[in-house]
């Protein structure tokens, strides 16, 4: 890992204001993430938690506020190989099949010079990322034939292939089966063990809870809690509580 701005914050977001059209989604939100932190951004559907991380990555335009990544203003930031992004789910689906390996290899492009053919180190990184999420044996399979949980793991492997210092995950465990959640938690544990920084958006933490060092709760576009992981309350604490996260593309489009 290359370390510039050693010890300085990985993410500094100040007074972020974001709105989709006329509708405000984030009001005056501050967020600072330091190296080796594992920050969970929690909140209900539509609270603005996904928008917060997407704004930090420059994927949604800011109305007001400023973002620094690794000490550099977002507008001038070029060190994208230090960032690994895991979106909520595989896009709308592509018209042409792609193998797991092809998809994961695209995560290596941030470290591969333009037009440069892959080197042995690139192939090793892709192999290591596939092994980290337990999908080495599915490398040649079309992504479309995997289960939802395995597809999610493919996206994590894609981010890991770039050997990032910061992982940003948007709802990585929503609707994911238990086996994939375990594989996923293992991959994240390994990443944190070598000093990686993690920001993950979640509706509930589940198996990831022991890894999280800090929780930020977003409610109606504002941060209402920043500190220890809150204990589950109400019906969420009920051991029989069954979390169901139906894939809802309509809603996902309104709350990207």
């Amino acid at each position: 890992m290359t370390v510039r701005n050693e010890g300085g914050p990985v993410i500094e977001a100040e007074r972020l204001v974001v709105s989709y059209g006329e509708r405000p989604v984030l009001h005056d939100v501050d967020l600072t993430v330091r190296p080796a932190e594992v920050v969970a951004i929690l909140g209900a559907n539509g609270s603005g938690k996904s928008t917060l991380v997407r704004a930090v990555l420059g994927l949604v335009p800011l109305v007001l506020g400023r973002v620094r990544l690794f000490g550099t203003p977002l507008r001038r930031f070029t060190g994208w190989q230090r960032v690994g992004y895991v979106p909520q789910r595989l896009g709308a689906g592509s018209g042409v099949p792609a193998t797991v390996r092809e998809l994961v290899s695209s995560g290596r492009l941030s470290r591969r010079g333009f037009l440069r053919p892959p080197r042995a180190a690139d192939r090793r990184a892709v192999d290591a990322a596939l092994a980290a999420v337990g999908l080495a044996d599915r490398a040649g399979d079309p992504v479309g034939t995997l289960s939802g949980g395995q597809q999610q793991r493919t996206l994590i492997a894609r981010a890991l292939a770039g050997e990032p210092e910061l992982l940003v995950l948007d709802e990585p465990t929503a609707g994911v089966d238990a086996a994939s959640q375990e594989a996923f938690a293992g991959a994240l544990r390994d990443f944190v063990a070598v000093g990686g920084t993690v920001v993950l958006v979640a509706h509930e933490l589940g198996v990831l809870q022991p890894l999280v060092t800090r929780a930020v709760v977003v409610h109606q576009g504002r941060i209402v809690h920043d500190g220890a992981v809150p204990r589950p309350a109400g019906h969420h604490a009920d051991p029989d509580h069954d979390h169901v996260h139906p894939h809802a593309p309509e809603e996902a489009r309104r709350w990207p």
Partner: peptide
């Protein structure tokens, strides 16, 4: 340019966060 064009056609947002 297949790897790069594949990346932007497959997942444009991810490609942007990759710095492409």
């Amino acid at each position: 340019l297949r790897p790069w064009l594949f990346a932007i056609c497959h997942d444009e947002e991810y490609a942007r966060v990759s710095g492409l």
